[in-house]
Amino acid sequence: MTITLTINGTTRELSAGAGETLLEVLRREGFTGVKTGCGTGDCGACAVLMNGRAVNSCLVLAAKADGGEIVTVEGLADGDRLHPLQEAFLDEGAVQCGYCTPGMLISAADLLSRKPSPTEEEIKEALSGNLCRCTGYTKQIRAVERAAERMRGGDDE
């Protein structure tokens, strides 16, 4: 079947199997930032924004995504300008192997788009579906706090 997706601002017509997942379609289209960690919705490495909400793309049938707006990690930066979350992840040492990082960034972007001043608990909740084995989450949580500060126009420490 043919589906229409607006991915990172560009609308495309894509062919997809009736039973294919959004994850498979996106990776086939070259969006390597969307990762396969488990394929069963347990690890969050495949997270993308679909119509503004962070979802496991491995759990979304391509047919359900048809007509929708998708944002992958590749769409967070504005040309050369990184998203404050990407800057903060780099500055805080929150990226180790980087495999869970795109999914984390997506979940965090969803959070900050709705809650500009999240508490630490709210950040942990927002990232609760993204598993990481390298970092122990500590610096990622800190990075989200720093990004939120920057996005609110706060001073860097």
Binding site: G30, T32, T72, V73, E74, L82, Q86, G93, G98, P102
Partner: peptide, 23 residues
Amino acid sequence: KSERKVDGLGLVTGRPRFVDDIR
């Protein structure tokens, strides 16, 4: 000093850096 990792940029932007990112 805790500078940005030399490979960090590609990782936060989802560039094709992992084994099956190339076709």
